[in-house]
Amino acid sequence: MSINEDDDPRFAYLEWLAIEARLLRIELYGDEYWADKQLTPCGTFAGDFHVGQGDWRDRPQPSTRAELVLRTVGAMPKYPAD
């Protein structure tokens, strides 16, 4: 099976998440030194979304949110109507 990473929202979402996390670390910690550090808060209200409800594989997979999130933030390309 061949995957075209250029057109697949899952790969675009992964790239977007990485950049978003990097920029958020700079915003929160105030220095580009922290940009590539793997600082991730633990114990926030969002933590249970992935691990608090049993096995994450039994819930909707992250890839199912890719296009929705990218559309919501305006990162999905707008193709002309056919």
Rank of each mutant, 00 (worst) to 15 (best):
R10D: 11
D55K: 01
D48I: 07
W16G: 10
P62N: 03
R59M: 11
G52M: 05
W16N: 12
Y29G: 02
M76T: 03
I19G: 08
A12G: 00
A18D: 12
E5D: 01
T44C: 13
S63T: 03
D55P: 00
T64G: 05
L24W: 10
T72N: 11
A46S: 15
G74Q: 03
V73Y: 13
M76L: 07
D7Y: 03
T40A: 11
L28W: 12
M1R: 05
W56C: 03
D7F: 05
F45T: 09
F45C: 09
L24F: 13
Y29H: 08
V69C: 09
A35Q: 12
Y79M: 03
G54M: 00
T72V: 06
R65T: 11
D82E: 12
Q53N: 10
P9H: 01
H50Q: 06
F49M: 12
A46T: 13
A12C: 00
M76N: 01
A46L: 15
G47T: 11
C42M: 12
D82L: 12
V73E: 10
D82W: 06
E27Y: 10
R22D: 12
D6R: 10
G47R: 06
I26K: 09
P62Q: 04
L68V: 12
G47C: 15
D36E: 11
R57A: 04
E15L: 09
R10I: 10
D82M: 10
V73L: 10
P77V: 08
W16C: 14
P62E: 05
R22K: 15
G52N: 07
E20G: 06
L23D: 14
T72S: 14
E32W: 02
L17S: 09
E20Y: 14
A21G: 09
A75C: 07
N4D: 14
G30L: 01
